[in-house]
Amino acid sequence: MKNKLLLILAIIIGLAAAAGIYLFLDNTRKTYQVNSDFVSVVVARQRIPAKTQITAQMVEMKDIPAISLNDLAVVDTKEVLGKTTKSEILPGEQVLRERLATERSSSEGLSFQIPQGKRAVSVAVDEVSGVAGLVKVGDRVDVLGTFDLQGATGQEKVSYTSILIQNVDVLSIDQSASPDALTSQDSKKASNSAHTITLSVTPEQAEPLVLCSEKGTIRLALRPAADQNVIYVPSIRGNQLIR
């Protein structure tokens, strides 16, 4: 009986001590909050791998001591949602701005500049097919393709020209994604040499673009800066040039 009473007493003392510690810590936390010594910061709820688009399920807000706040930490989830990570972020780690890729920044690498749902496809151009080297990064172009189709038995091949894709962004010129990169500068240094222009296209647009560049010829048509209209123009056959 005596041992049982001692056990009960020990349990009561233990619970009282635990409650006292909890109240002390809770009171300390509230005191810090009142004194603005705690701040809310965005932290990773789970491991976020590099080159991952951040969703609401991956992050959360957390109160931390102000002294522990990193100067580059994000304090609003709106700043991170939809952004792509440059490097891995561990669970509970503060989300830092330097870990997030800035939108369409050439310093992050080309893969960070490609919009969601698009692909980067490079095509070879010269001074003629590349609009005299006057296309620059950030411009929008149409791509025209010329190709031959075999006619019926005994008939000659027929040449066609068609607008393959319209209103696509120029991501890079040669190996430069800088808006200051102009193909005309390079063409003056190396006449008749081919250059590459990388376009932002959908997977569906990539197929005819690659097929015609491999089996036919392509030519870029530079669009006006403010024109994003897509129009329907039927293909033209070689014999239509003769009236």
Rank of each mutant, 00 (worst) to 15 (best):
M1C: 08
I12N: 10
A17N: 02
L23F: 10
F24M: 12
N27W: 01
R29F: 04
T31Y: 10
Q33P: 01
F38H: 06
V39P: 03
V41N: 09
V42W: 01
V43T: 11
R47A: 08
I48K: 01
A56T: 12
Q57G: 13
V59A: 08
D63T: 06
L69M: 14
D76K: 13
I89Y: 02
P91V: 02
Q94W: 02
V95D: 03
L96E: 11
L96H: 05
R97F: 10
S105N: 15
S105V: 08
S106V: 07
Q113I: 04
P115Q: 07
P115L: 11
K118R: 12
V121G: 03
V125N: 04
V131Y: 06
L134A: 15
V137A: 09
D139L: 07
D139R: 04
D142S: 12
F147L: 07
F147W: 08
Q150A: 10
Q150S: 08
A152K: 07
V158Q: 09
Y160W: 04
L164D: 00
D169T: 10
I173S: 02
I173D: 02
D174K: 12
D174F: 04
A177K: 04
P179T: 09
L182A: 14
A190G: 09
S191G: 13
S193P: 02
E204H: 13
Q205C: 01
E207M: 11
L209I: 07
I218H: 05
I218D: 03
R223G: 06
P224W: 05
P224L: 08
V230W: 00
I231D: 10
P234M: 01
I242K: 14
